[in-house]
């Protein structure tokens, strides 16, 4: 661990994210589609919450609400004690597509948020070669990318790019980390490796995390709480804590308790898809 990356200030208590009866409707009139049913969800500071559910159920819609990229059509969204407006929030985001900029080195890519976010942006010119770079290197070390800082993105594998993507999401020490299926495009072994990486990062920096995923095993491994959503228009069907001790291991995912949780959630999702089809058997 390095001094360049101080853990975030301890939880101030209270909710990091508070959705009350928040609903989203896309379009208007006859063409309007309801993407999210009025949903109430409270996430405390420092929690790691996974959102699982069938595809198109509105998981990503919740992420966009929380990040302030879209406004609710009804209800209230409060993030960090205020309405999410992109101007004020310190949010880190990572998607399935790592979207590294090909003309920048890995280290420059990781530092990109520092060029944008206040108060770092005004210091960027002065500190990009010193403090900020040290910080980027410290993060890259933590995800196992030591020695790759000066490489260009095309010289890295998909798993390595996704590690760099996590670094970019954390470089400005966000209080809130929003992850939209970050490991969805990776092979099984790389994915399991990155669960470990993400868990370590979370234990170290303790941001509030909202993770959208299809993968129940991933949710069980990483989250301290799992919310199951119904098919579109989405709503939250099930909200269960995950009590397994940390740091968790892939071996744990084969233990009876873990498998039981997995199966119970799976049943809820099959139910949510409105099916008792062969998947349920």
């Amino acid at each position: 661990m390095t001094d360049a990356l101080m853990p975030l200030s301890p939880a101030r208590g209270g909710a990091a994210i508070d959705l009350s009866q928040a609903a989203v409707i896309f379009g208007r009139g006859a063409k309007a589609t309801r993407a999210l049913q009025p949903t109430t969800l409270r996430i405390n500071d420092g929690e790691f919450v996974a959102l699982v559910g069938p595809s198109g159920c509105g998981k990503s819609t919740i992420l966009k609400l929380v990040s302030g990229l879209i406004a609710p059509s009804g209800g209230v969204v409060v993030v960090g004690g205020r309405e999410p407006s992109a101007k004020a929030a310190r949010i880190g985001m990572a998607f399935q597509n790592p979207t590294m900029l090909p003309w920048l080195t890995v280290e420059q890519n990781v530092m990109l948020p520092l060029k944008i976010v206040r108060p770092f942006r005004s210091e960027y010119r002065a500190k990009r070669k010193t403090e900020f770079r040290d910080r980027a290197h410290a993060l890259l070390d933590q995800v196992g990318l030591k020695g790759f800082a000066a490489k260009y993105p095309w010289q890295l594998s998909g798993g390595m790019l996704q590690r760099a993507n996590l670094c970019r999401a954390l470089i400005h020490e966000p209080r809130l980390l929003l992850l939209d299926e970050p490991f969805g495009a990776l092979d099984q072994f790389t994915r399991e490796e990155l669960w470990g990486v993400l868990q370590d990062l979370w234990l170290l920096h303790r941001p509030t995390v909202l993770l959208v995923t299809h993968d129940l095993k991933e949710a069980g491994y990483l989250a301290s709480r799992i919310c199951v959503m119904s098919a579109r228009p989405g709503r939250i069907l099930d909200d269960s804590p995950v009590e397994f001790p940390r740091p968790r291991t892939v071996a744990m995912t084969f233990e009876p308790d873990f498998v039981a949780l997995n199966q119970r959630l799976r049943a809820r999702i099959v139910e949510a898809r409105g099916g008792s089809e062969e998947l349920a058997r």
């Binding site: 990040s67 302030g68 990229l69 985001m93 979207t99 060029k115 944008i116 929003l178």
Partner: peptide, 23 residues
């Protein structure tokens, strides 16, 4: 420009000009 990247930057409070200039 990839929409995901635009979302990442907008969530950081990037203005249209920031996105134009950096990306």
């Amino acid at each position: 420009t990839e929409p995901e990247l635009e979302d990442v930057l907008k969530a950081l409070g990037a203005s249209k000009f920031d996105i134009l200039w950096n990306v």
